[in-house]
Computed example of a mutant assay.
Amino acid sequence: MNRTLLRWTVPAAAAVAVVAAATIPTLASADSPELPDRTPEELAAAVVEAEPVPMSGSAVYTARLGLPEIPAQMTGGADPLNLLSGSSTIRMWTDAEGRSRVSLLGTTSEYSVVTDGPEAWTYASSSHQVVHLTLGPDAQEHLADAEAEHAAAEAAGTLPTPQDLAQQLLERAEEHADVTVGDAVVVAGRAAYQVVVTPTDDGTLVDRVVVAVDGETLVPLSVQVWSTEATNAPALELAYTDVSFSAPSDAALTFSTPSGAEVTEKVVELGDLDAAPEHTGDVPDGVTVSGEGFATVVERSGVDLEALLTGDPAAVADELDHPLGGGPGEELFGDMGGGTELDRAALYEQLTTPVDGGRLLSSTLLSVLVTDDGRILVGAVPGETLLEAAGLA
């Protein structure tokens, strides 16, 4: 991704975190630092206008979702499944120019993703496996053309201005929530603005989302997602414990294959990119949406649960209309999970409870209902709401 796209997409993503329900938290000092006063509109516009900056740091992710404890044999040391409960440490480096490294650290292992322009690598130390992804020539040319079109639109002034985008984001957020700027806080030793997004619908499990934005660079440093079911601590939080805005070393951003690691080469072709569905706003066939805002319930019918639980890449890609189904994405699905063997059926039984007509996963922020007649309902709402929506209450 070139500098032009980064200047728009990275700050825009940060602005979404400021004005909507993102998932990132705060480890803040009780003292309120001094920062210039800003309204939500002013802060959102400043975030969108901000240039991407090089940075590195450590963050702690903690989940208190109230889920049943997952047996140790179901996960690996640095397995993404560990993000469902407890705390995990994440290390991140980026040069803000298309090179980055993110590592999920376990007690004795790590799972890392390294990107460098059109190339990416994943490494699971527990299985000593590397996956190297590259874009084929046609795919690279296609993305270069898209970047050129974007740059031309920006130069011609046909793209929305940062102020326009910020206003649109705020208006969208304020349809279903109150957005305010609270007292400044300290995160990882840095003064930060604190933005609070409070849903106005009492039918959701989300009580509020609190985002801390660095007062100087305007980079989001932390997010807390609070639940109506638990008031003593956030249900989800991810916060930097240390951060530096100096350029990372070249060594930190360069992937070197560990000695003896098994390497799998994957090439993403243009056809795989073209297979990705366009976001037209239309609801796909077999999907119905009810409710609004944070209380939205999405229902998918005609689901082959057996295919999902077996984890067969082709079956899952087809079942979920995976945009890369039939291409390299089909193989990639099989590599997910840090190289650990996962008994999906056992995990399903562990996380869900039987109800009349199906099984229900209930947490402090999200509920999932799987019905015996092949429907899946998902929402940030109580389980009873899903049962009523499914006609099982």
Rank of each mutant, 00 (worst) to 15 (best):
N2R: 00
R3T: 15
T4P: 04
L5F: 10
R7W: 07
V10F: 11
A13S: 07
A13Y: 06
V18H: 09
V19D: 08
A22G: 15
P36V: 05
P52G: 03
M55N: 08
M55F: 05
M55G: 07
V60E: 02
R64N: 05
E69D: 09
L83G: 01
W93H: 06
W93C: 11
G106N: 13
T108H: 15
S112G: 14
G117S: 13
A120T: 12
W121G: 11
A124L: 10
S125W: 10
S127W: 07
H128G: 02
Q140I: 07
D145Q: 15
A148C: 12
H150F: 15
A153Q: 14
P162V: 04
Q163G: 00
L165F: 11
L169Y: 14
T200D: 11
D201V: 08
G203D: 02
A212Y: 03
P220M: 06
L221M: 15
L221S: 09
L221I: 13
E229A: 15
T231C: 01
T231R: 10
L236Y: 11
E237A: 13
T241I: 13
D250W: 04
P258D: 07
E265W: 06
K266W: 04
H279N: 00
T280W: 02
G286H: 07
G291C: 06
R300F: 10
S301F: 06
A307Y: 06
L308E: 04
T310K: 01
G311C: 01
A317L: 06
L320I: 13
D321N: 07
H322R: 00
T340A: 15
D343Y: 03
R344E: 07
L347Y: 05
E349S: 13
S362L: 01
L366S: 03
S367Y: 03
S367N: 11
A390W: 00
